[in-house]
Computed example of a mutant assay.
Amino acid sequence: MKINTSEFIISAVKRAQYPMDGFPEVAFVGRSNVGKSSIINSLTNRKMLARVSQTPGKTRLVNFFLINKEFYIVDLPGYGYAKVSKKEKESWGKTIEMYLTGRQQLKRIVLLVDCRHKPTGDDIMMYEWIKHFGYDVVVIATKSDKLSRMNLKKSEKVIRETLKLTKQDKLYFFSSLNKVGRDELIDHIFEEPVHGLSEEDTTQE
C-alpha cells in the first residue's frame, strides 16, 4: 500500500466532534515520550503532519488525520508522563477510554513502546485495555536505531514476555530516523483494516 495524501482533519475534545463519514480508523497510542508523532510523520512522509512537542504529555486531544481520502490515522493522547497532576492523568485516561468505547470505525490499534526499555505498568495496562475492548492490536517498538542487532533480539524477548505476547501477536521494530522497513510496516498496519472491510463495516454509526 502507498500513502499518497494525508491531511489533518480535527482535534476532538468530545465524541460529537469525531468524524462521522464512516471511514475506518487505525489509532496510535503510547507513552508521551515514545515518539508517536514522529512515527506518524514518518509513515505518512510528512514532517509536520503530527506536531512533535518538546514537552512530553502535551497532546491531550484525539487528533484525526485523513489518509488517501479513505481511512483515518487517529493520534490518541500520550500517557504515563510523571510531571503532570493526578487530575490531568485521569482526564487523559477518560479521553482515551471515551474514544475506545464503542467506536465501530476503529479497526486496529497500534501500541508504541520504547525498544530501549522494558514496557512499563502503563504499557501493560494499555495493552490489556485494548484486548479487553476486543480490538486488533499491533505493537511497535520505536527508536530501534538506538540498539544493536543483538540488543534488539533481547528487547524483543523482554517486550514479548512483559506484555505476554504470543508468537502470533504482532510486534515490529521501527526507527523514525532511518525509516528502515517503512513500506513493509505500512502494509502490516494499514492494508487489512482499510481494504478488508465489508460494506456493513463502512456505514456510519
Rank of each mutant, 00 (worst) to 15 (best):
M1Y: 07
N4C: 11
T5V: 04
I9E: 12
I9H: 09
A12P: 11
K14W: 06
K14I: 13
Q17N: 14
P19T: 08
P24K: 08
P24R: 07
V26E: 11
F28M: 11
F28T: 11
G30Q: 12
G35N: 05
K36P: 11
S38V: 06
S38M: 08
I39C: 07
I39R: 07
I39W: 07
T44R: 04
R46N: 12
P56T: 07
K58R: 15
T59Q: 08
R60K: 13
L61H: 15
V62D: 03
I67Q: 07
K69A: 08
I73D: 01
I73R: 00
I73C: 01
I73N: 00
G78D: 09
Y81V: 08
Y81H: 12
K83E: 12
K83D: 12
V84I: 15
S85Y: 06
K87L: 10
E90H: 03
S91V: 04
W92C: 01
W92P: 00
I96P: 05
Y99R: 09
R103E: 04
L112S: 09
H117T: 05
H117Q: 11
P119F: 02
D123G: 04
M125Q: 11
E128Y: 02
H132W: 05
D136N: 13
V137S: 10
V139D: 07
S144L: 04
D145A: 03
D145M: 03
R149K: 15
V158K: 04
V158F: 00
I159H: 02
I159Y: 03
E161C: 00
T162F: 01
K164I: 01
L165Y: 03
K167D: 14
K167R: 14
F173L: 07
S176R: 02
N178M: 02
D183Q: 13
D183E: 15
L185M: 05
I186T: 08
I189V: 09
V194T: 13
V194A: 05
H195N: 15
L197H: 01
